[in-house]
Simulated scan of single mutants.
Amino acid sequence: MPTVRALQRQWPDARITWIIGRGEHSLLAGLPGVEFVVYDKSTGLAGMRAIWRELRETPFDVLLHMQQSIRASVLSLGLKARVRLGYDRARAKDWQTWFTNRQLTPHPKAHVLESFMDFARELGVDDDRLEWGIPLPDAAREEARQFLAGRPALVISPCASPRLRNFRNWSAEGYAAVIEHAWRHHGLTTFLTGGTSAQEVEMCERIAAGLSEAVPVNLLGRTSLKGLLAIIDEARMVIAPDSGPVHMANAMNTPVLGLFATTNPERAAPWCWREHVVNRYPDAVATYLHKPLDEIVWGTRVRHEDAMSLITFEDVIHRLDALLALTADHEKSTRGVSHDV
């Protein structure tokens, strides 16, 4: 989003086509000045061919190959583009350089957001201020109002995407203790968000079983994606592991407390709130990879099921209390303001 905004500032009349997944499109629909072409990943090669047919009469000046996957690279083969800009060799994954004819200038140890903005810089954009401005329709705001019912909200999305060896989730017991603390000491009602996978349902059941006083609102599978964004927009704070909701909160300028141990927050933390994450990544690297940080490849994940247990309840409430105090007068009118990158 900030990259698209930067391109629009530089070239207001440019035609921007964004090939996007179905779920992501439901979040960004309504974005002015962008033509979305939706790709349903479940359709495989047939879906790619449909996109190729749709865009076969459209020659592009430049293709920004920002998604690193074989699927994205194969899809790019059917698009007519004079310049195919991808990552430099140090950052490229899944043989992406085979599918591009121009690479970004190297940028060692870049945050993911910085890597995205490097595409705009490579094209000559100087104004790289960060702006999001995701459209929120009235229906989404009404959805949020009905769920929140005027209650000061702490949004917790306890689970990252359920993928193979994706050990990013903290403990149910830890979340339960944080929910009790937020209720007793700050008067915050917790709203549990996420999907309806077995992992997420079980996690929220275990969280509820560990509570004695606070009563969270379970929103698993009950909101639209735009509705969830509106809830996050109204929330006092969001807590989540390295997952979509921390970046949704960042985009809406909602205070967010990210929980990091298996991924490096220097690379992937919510940008505007990166100084406030719980960071046990160095401890996880030392404990489970048996190396200091300066001896591992940038972006290395700690794929150990116990790594997130290095985060303690005290770590989280210390950050929670400090961030709530810091943002006590946090004004949502600052949403959409520019941030330096």
Rank of each mutant, 00 (worst) to 15 (best):
A140R: 02
N169W: 03
L154F: 03
R102T: 10
A140Y: 00
L154H: 04
V155R: 07
F116G: 04
A176I: 09
P158G: 03
L148E: 11
G150K: 06
E180T: 07
S157P: 03
L154C: 03
T100K: 08
E114G: 02
E143I: 05
W183Y: 12
L130V: 12
S115P: 00
R129K: 13
F167Y: 15
L188C: 09
A149L: 08
G174F: 01
R102P: 09
L130H: 00
I156L: 15
A120M: 12
N166F: 12
A172T: 05
P137G: 02
V178H: 01
D127M: 10
A153R: 03
W183F: 14
L104M: 04
D126Q: 13
A153N: 07
S161H: 10
L104G: 00
K109V: 03
L113A: 06
W132S: 06
V112T: 11
N101H: 05
A120I: 08
G133I: 05
L123F: 09
V155D: 02
A139S: 15
R121L: 08
G124M: 04
E142R: 15
R151F: 04
P106Y: 10
L148M: 15
I179S: 02
V155L: 13
I134R: 08
K109W: 07
R168Q: 10
E142C: 07
A172C: 07
N166I: 10
